[in-house]
Every structure is written in C-alpha cells, then in structure tokens.
C-alpha cells in the first residue's frame, strides 16, 4: 500500500514546521533552564501556591462542567436546528473568542455586578452578590472558555453522518431520544476534545478573572494571577508557579489524549 516516499516531509513544509516547533517549544525550554531548581522545594511549599493551584483546578473543572451542560445543547442548535438568524447567533456566541478578556471582565460587571442589569436584581431579591467570589472566577472562566467547546462540538456535529439520525427518526425515536442515544455517542470524541480545550483555556484564564473576580488568596486567586503578581516582586517564584501550571496541564492533556482522543490519529 505504501507509496515510495510516503511519510517523507517535503522540504517547503519541513522547514516552516520545524521553525514553528522551535517557536512554540523554546520558551518552555527557557522556563526549564531558568527555573531555580535548588530552591524549588522551598518555593513550591510557599503559602498560597497549593491554595492557588487547588482553586485553579476546581474552578477550571467547574467552568468546563457548566460549559458542557450549556454549550453542547447550544452547539446542537447551531449545527442542526433551522431557526432563523443562526449565523448571527453563531457570531454572537463566539465573540468571547476575540474579545480581550479584560473587556469581558468589565462586561460581566455591567451584567452581574452590583450595579449590573441582572446583578442588582440578584442582590435586591436574594442578597446574592457575584463579583469577588469563587463563583465569579467560574463565571469569568466559563465566559471565556465556553466558545471553544461550542465551536469544537459544532464542528463534530457537522462532520457526523446525519443519516444515523434519520434512521433513528424512521424507527420512531423523537429528536431528544435521537440526540441522547445516537448523536451524542457519535460526537463523543469531539465533545471530549472540546472539553479539554475549554478546560485548558479556563485554567490559563487571567484577564477576565482578575477584573471580575479580583484577586484574593484562597477565594479568587488562581495560578495565572499568582504568577502575574509574583512576577512583580520575585520573578523566580513566578517561574516556579508557571512550571507547576505547565506540568499540571501537560499531564492532564496527555492523560486525556490517551484515554479519549487517541482515535484522532490512526
């Protein structure tokens, strides 16, 4: 089956690809080289590191859960329904992909803040204030990360063979049953890939979080915020924190790739 030269990379592709690898990997090498290995243990056990890491992992996971519950149905609507204005709707819900996250944070204030459209009502009716709480961290991360999941799942839905759904319909299944029993298993790898992307984006989220949720150790200080602040006074600590974040996300991505995303490559 194999053609002569199959698997060989043509030079016009090999050179830019190698440059891309160097560009993406060298900064990480820089982090590793400059890391203060001798004082690593001391830096890692510094108060606040474990706290920030725990909060980051929890909030990113919560943001991914919310994104799955709301984002998968939205992706289905965008890919399968015939409602009018679908194109506009798709453009609107993917705006956070291009919006500077800090602007997203301010926008969240205008809606969920004390003076916000929904936030002032929440405070009056239930005494709930969202900003500067751990919930605000999840809200900010969800706002920024959910579009990654939606785009990914919508792509998977479009690529999936719709004839399976048609068959299910002719066998008498209603649309909800079809979605649950046929569509969802069909696009499961796409959903998993979207969830991983979404989780990684939430884990690295900085701008919207520090704006809308603020920065307080234990309640709203996530790893990226801790890194940014450490950079102001002790660059070494910032490098250590970055390494921790890097190790955690690499481990998670590798683990998930083996478990669920292995099918992407034959």
């Amino acid at each position: 089956m194999s053609r002569p030269g199959a698997g060989r990379v043509p030079l016009p592709l090999a050179v830019p690809a190698a440059l891309a690898v160097a560009f993406l990997v060298l900064p990480l090498v820089g982090l590793l080289v400059r890391a203060p290995w001798s004082s690593l243990g001391e830096q890692l056990t510094a108060p606040g590191v474990g706290q920030a890491l725990r909060l980051s992992l929890l909030s990113a996971t919560a943001a991914t859960a919310v994104s799955l519950v709301l984002g998968v149905p939205l992706a289905w609507v965008l890919a399968r329904s015939r409602i009018r204005g679908r194109t506009v709707l798709r453009a609107l819900v993917t705006v956070p992909l291009v919006l500077p996250p800090v602007v997203g944070g301010v926008a969240l204030f205008l809606v969920l803040g004390r003076q916000g459209i929904v936030g002032s009502w929440l405070e009056d009716a239930f005494g709930i204030t969202v900003p500067f709480t751990t919930a605000a961290v999840v809200v900010a991360q969800t706002f920024v990360a959910m579009p990654f999941l939606v785009v990914s799942v919508e792509g998977a839905l479009r690529a999936a063979d719709a004839r399976f759904e048609d068959v299910a319909a002719t066998l008498g299944a209603d649309r909800w049953t079809t979605f649950r029993r046929v569509t969802l298993p069909l696009v499961a790898p796409g959903v998993a890939a979207g969830a991983v992307l979404c989780w990684a984006r939430a884990l690295g989220e900085f701008g919207a979080t520090i704006t809308f949720a603020g920065n307080f150790p234990g309640t709203t200080q996530t790893m990226p915020t801790a890194v940014y602040l450490a950079l102001q006074s002790e660059p070494e600590a910032a490098v250590v924190l970055s390494l921790v974040l890097l190790a955690v996300s690499l481990a998670t991505l590798l683990l998930l790739r083996d478990r669920w995303l292995g099918r992407a490559t034959p």
Partner: peptide
C-alpha cells in the same frame, strides 16, 4: 479585610468607577 488585592492601582480605581 479587603475583598480583592489589585494588581495595579488603576485596576482598583476602575472598580470604584464601576461602583463595584
């Protein structure tokens, strides 16, 4: 007992301007 520790002084000011 602050609710947030801002990364720069203008970020704190913005939150006052927004009434948050």
């Amino acid at each position: 007992v602050p609710d947030t520790e801002e990364e720069d002084v203008r970020a704190g000011l913005t939150k006052v301007q927004l009434g948050e």
